[in-house]
Amino acid sequence: MAVDTVELETTLRTSIPISHLEIIDQSNGCGENYAILVVSDAFEGKNTLARHRFVNELLKKQIAQMHAFSQKTFTPKQYETWLERQNAS
């Protein structure tokens, strides 16, 4: 069953302040493999594990319907650095 990405996005946006969000369908059509990239101030001061747990908890219902789920979590500042590095390499 395909995951409702609209609901996924709404859940995230209503729970934490989002400055950038990408939901990438990596499933080639079956709708069960997703990668998300979340940029939010809410991640400030939290380590990666805490951030991922936080997102996992928010998206519990959606993740349960997926086959694979992968996430990247950045603060706005970290996202900039990451983008620069992506462009550099």
């Binding site: 380590n47 594990l49 805490a50 747990r53 519990k60």
Partner: peptide
């Protein structure tokens, strides 16, 4: 669910700083 899980997650992040 989102709101209940949010409160859960918040409570947990305190503990998760040292997982």
């Amino acid at each position: 669910r989102a709101s209940t899980s949010l409160s859960l997650a918040v409570r947990r992040t305190a503990a998760a700083s040292r997982p």
